[in-house]
Amino acid sequence: MKEREIVIIGAGPAGLAAALGAKDKGAKDILIIERDQYLGGILNQCIHNGFGLHRFKEELTGPEYAQRYADMVKSAGIEISDRTFAVKITNKKEIFCLKPGEMMKLKAKAIILATGCRERTREMIPIHGFRPSGVYPAGLAQKMINIEGWIPGEEAVIIGSGDIGLIMARRMIFEGMKVKAVIEIMPKSRGLRRNIRQCLEDFSIPLYLSHKVTKIHGKERVEKVSVCKVDESFKEIKDTSFDIKCDTVLVSVGLIPENELLEAAGGLIDKKTNSPVCLKPYQTSIEGIFSCGNCNKVYDLVDWVSRDSYEAGGLAAMYANGELK
C-alpha cells in the first residue's frame, strides 16, 4: 500500500482544477487517476464552441478548454496515472485501481472524487416498446460522431430538450442527417435559450413541448416512435397520439452524478439526486473524502466546474496538512 498525500479520481475539468487548487494551497504530493488515455473528461467530445467565456473571457471548444487545463497541470508538475480505473475506495481512504498489467493500492491523506456523471437512459424513464438498435444516449451519439466519426443513422428523433440534446440536433444536421423532432415532456425546455435558437430554430426543427414518446417501434432497427400530448401530471391526453418515422432515437433526459465508489465505501448519498450528502461544501460524509464537479452536482457550465473544483482542491490540501477544522 503506497502512501500518498492527495489522490484525485478523474481527470476531467473538475479533477484538473482540483489538482491546481491543492497545489496552490501547498500540497506537495498529488496523484490524479484517470481511466481514459486522455485528460479532460467529457470535454473531449464537446467539439462545439461556448466553453470558457467566464474563465478565459474567450469562446473555446471543449477540447481547447481541456487542453489549457491539461497544460497547466503538466507545467505544475502534477503526476497523472492514465488508463487507470479506480474500482474501490474505503473509509480508511485506501484506493484500489486497475490498469493494464498492474493493480495499484494506495492510501491517501485526502481523496478528491471528480468522477463526473453518467446519462439517464431510456430504461430509467422508462420509455416502453421494442428494444431495437438505433436508440442511443445522446452523449454516446456525441462520442460516436465527434470522436469516432461514426454516423448513427439517417433520420433522428430526440427525446429531451436539455442542452446536450439540442447540441446534438445541430450536430446531426451538420453531418447530413435529418432531425425530425425534439420531444419534451415538460412545458418548457431546460436548455439554454441560445441553444434553442442556434440549434433548433435556425434549422426549423420542431420542438414538441408537453409531449412524450409512448412507444419505440421496430424489432431490429428503430422504425418510428409514437408520441402524444400530456397534461399537467404528465398523463397521456386521449386522441393526441401520432407517429414519427425515424431510424434513430437520441435520449437526452438528464445526467446522474457517478458516486458508486463513495456509496460502496459507506458514504451518504442523496437518493433523489445521487449527489453525496455534504454537510460542509465539497466534504462528503466520510472525513477526508472530498467531491467536486459533476459528481458533486450536475453543472451546466464548465467554467463553474473549474472554479468550484479549484476551491475543493484547496480544502483537501488544507485537510491533508491539518489546517482544516
Binding site: 431495437p132 438498435s133 460516436m144 469516432e148 466519426g149 461514426w150 454516423i151 448513427p152 443513422g153 439517417e154 453531418e175 431490429e220 432497427r221 431510424d247
Partner: peptide, 19 residues
Amino acid sequence: SPLEITKKGKNSNIIKRIK
C-alpha cells in the same frame, strides 16, 4: 468494419456511415 457490427444480427446495425 464497424459498419457491419450489429446489436443482434440482421438489420440491427449500429451505425450507417463513417465520415
